[in-house]
Design a protein around this nucleic acid. Structure first.
Lengths: 196, 196
DNA sequence: AATTATACTGAACAAATGTTCAGTTAGCAA
DNA sequence: TTGCTAACTGAACATTTGTTCAGTATAATT
């Protein structure tokens, strides 16, 4: 069970990593909490591993890994909300954090979008789209598809006649997938654009 | 000087970190390169530190830190280019990587956009915008501004009459900054949107 | 009342790890 | 040639670090 003490240890592990880009040694955890015996911390770590919160590489130093499924990585504070009509004061609220971006991008690749076929979905020429390859594709998802050796970013729709790839731009025509080699490479997951 | 050998060591450090979320020990670097003496690697590390490519925390294990100014972090491969009109084959080209996203976001905060005042700049309601606070603001930059205790995301323009905050939506009016408390909180740096 | 889990102390061991020193070889520049 | 640097080898040393064992105390659970 995740006790208060162990919650604080998890918290320390996250903060330490965010500051130092590495995890602490057992003795460093000890001194942070004022625990005099390394075994005091070591048993916490083993319990946290047993319960799936972390994983440990035995015999290796600083070899802790936070389990991303069980933990929300606190990396970037989410600062208030920018509004056009109803502005809100910028306040960092505890617990408001953006999920670990590295984690969000893991197991994916990045595609650079060229063309304006998805402009109405807010995806512009030059934007970067992270694509998750291990995802089941549902109706209306934005997907990256391979069609006869060509790659396109489109919104996918399934109906009785088959698969249709819809652009989000009236100037472009939908593609009805009939023959030839077709495969969905992955599902568009995140949009990243450099603004400056 | 950054020799070929040291370039490969830097590369290994980056790759090892991306895979393991920690840096290797000196002996792990040794065995990767088939170097039999720890000093062989240790002198490389000291040279890399001397030249500003990394920094070392002496006496601590796995305490390497890559200098972000001197290194491009290779984290996510940039896979080809998605095009609407002229599709391109998906090929991972060497050297094509997205810069370290953590690094891009460092020293910034994230704002959640509400409203559609910037819709023509492709910034939609609910999008996340990373804001860099330590940046000089130029004409036409998209900035987060604090005006009489209200926060807004707008394109900033300087002219003889003063500062104007422009929305990217014809339904909204520009704001002429005349009186009251005004401050630019930061410059919009990246746009992040979850697509699924 | 007995058992189990948490949360430690204290001591000790073995392995991992950073660091240093003395030397070697090869190539490059003055 | 001489000197310098890169790129090591090999050995040794000193910490650091993970791990284990034997206890103690407290609170909650069966």
């Amino acid at each position: 069970m995740l006790t208060e003490r162990r919650k604080k240890i998890l918290d320390f592990l996250q903060n330490y990593f965010n500051e130092n880009l590495r995890y602490p040694t057992i003795r460093e955890i000890c001194s942070h909490f004022g625990i005099k015996s390394t075994n005091g911390v070591y048993e916490h770590l083993k319990a946290l591993e047993r319960d799936g919160y972390i994983s440990l590489d035995r015999k290796k130093s600083r070899a802790i890994k936070l389990n991303k499924d069980k933990n929300i990585f606190k990396r970037i504070p989410l600062l208030g909300i920018v509004s056009a009509g109803e502005p809100i004061f910028p306040v960092i609220e505890e617990g408001d954090y953006l999920e670990d971006i590295n984690n969000l991008l893991k197991g994916t690749f990045i595609l650079k979008v060229r063309g304006n076929s998805m402009i109405n979905a807010g995806i512009h020429d030059g934007d970067l789209v992270s694509v998750d390859v291990d995802r089941d594709v549902k109706n209306n998802d934005i997907v990256v598809a391979l069609l006869d050796g060509e790659v396109t970013l489109k919104r996918i729709k399934f109906d009785k006649e088959g698969i249709i790839l819809f652009p989000e731009n009236p100037d472009y025509s939908p593609i009805y997938v009939k023959s030839g080699f077709f495969r969905v490479l992955g599902k568009a997951k995140m949009l990243i654009r450099k603004l400056d």
